[in-house]
């Protein structure tokens, strides 16, 4: 059985303008020790999916439909206290903007050992401190810096400290939300490489959330492309990155520079994602899609399986496969 199975997950935010349907019918599964990346532009619902897996939706957020099975248990229906015990012990998180993820008035080491102590009553303070030392070594922060405050760290060190914190309770799943966005390209590459190595060494599953498809392709086994709250393409890294099917995926790939590929003009994707309070009928990408036809506004595309590990939601592929 998969470590994590998400079925038909829909999440909405109550706003003054009405229910903002941030995530619509998302399903995926993640095996032990594997990594999965979600890619999409801001507001596509990728962070909302990540937050819901830890029960950390903001107050106005609400799961409308669906199930999240973690180790076979539906974590959407367990009590707040059970959820608290599950957090960090089983699922931890590397936050977007590590700069702000650390409390400025507490020493970095204390913020990590705090998590250890909160989840195992048998561990003494000294023991927790030793564990933090080990974690610092693991992520490559000198242990003399343990007693420092976050503002004394450089951006890269903060990021490493946040990774060390995520590893503190030896979780089975880590959700990494834009973990390297605020860093310069060189530090970013180092940290991604180290994260990948750590993940392989420790056998932890990772869900990687980013707007940058090349980063996700670097670290993840599987990739899910999200647009306007929906998954539009899902498959193995090789399939999605090398033979992208959905017009949005292709547009994403040509809007980012590559280090190794030929120098080409970057193509921005014109237009804006649709308003999710009142989402359009049919395909949500059609207004920005170069290949859209009249049909796209009538029918909401269903999943089409291209290969055993590659599927896409675009009407053009439905047609190729013939009538269902």
């Amino acid at each position: 059985m998969a470590l994590l199975e998400v079925e038909d997950l829909s999440i909405g935010y109550r706003t003054r303008l009405g229910l903002h349907r941030a995530v619509e019918g998302v399903s995926f599964s993640l095996e032990e020790g594997k990594s999965l990346g979600f890619v999409g532009e801001s507001g596509c619902g990728k962070t909302t999916v990540g937050m819901s897996l830890m029960g950390l939706l903001p107050r106005n957020g609400e799961v409308l439909r669906g199930r999240v099975l973690f180790e076979g248990r539906d974590i959407l229906s367990i009590s707040e206290e059970e959820l608290r015990l599950l957090r960090w012990k089983k699922i931890s998180m590397i936050f977007q903007a590590a700069m702000n993820a650390l409390n400025p008035v507490k020493k970095v080491a204390d913020q990590i050992s705090e998590a250890i102590l909160a989840h195992s009553s048998s561990v003494s303070k000294a023991e927790a401190s030793r564990q933090v030392e080990g974690l610092f070594q693991l992520v490559g922060v000198p242990k003399e810096r343990m007693r420092d405050y976050p503002h004394q760290y450089s951006g890269g060190m903060k990021q490493r400290a946040v990774i060390a914190m995520a590893l503190a309770c030896k979780p089975r799943l880590i959700i990494a939300d834009e973990p390297t966005t605020a860093l310069d390209v060189i530090v970013q590459a180092q940290i991604l490489e180290e994260t990948r190595l750590l993940q392989e060494q420790l056998g932890i599953s990772i869900i990687f959330i980013s707007h940058d498809i090349s980063i996700v392709a670097d670290v993840c086994h599987d990739i899910g492309i999200m647009y306007a709250g929906e998954l539009v393409e899902y498959g193995s890294r090789e399939e999605v990155f090398d033979s992208p099917a959905h017009p949005y995926t292709r547009a994403l790939l040509s809007s980012f520079p590559t280090l190794t590929g030929n120098r080409e003009m970057l193509k921005p994707i014109p237009g804006e994602p649709p308003n999710l309070v009142d989402p359009p009928k049919g395909c949500r990408f059609r207004e920005r899609c170069q290949e859209a036809s009249h049909e796209c506004s009538l029918i909401s595309p269903a999943w089409t399986e291209l290969f055993p590990r590659h599927k896409v939601r675009c009407i053009r592929f439905e047609r190729k496969k013939g009538p269902q």
Binding site: R87, W88, Q96, A101, L102, N103, A115, A118, M165
Partner: peptide, 16 residues
């Protein structure tokens, strides 16, 4: 602040 979200994600008690 983000660090409050971090604290909550760490599974700390609300009073903490």
């Amino acid at each position: 602040e983000d660090y409050i979200l971090t604290a909550r994600a760490k599974g700390l008690r609300e009073s903490v």
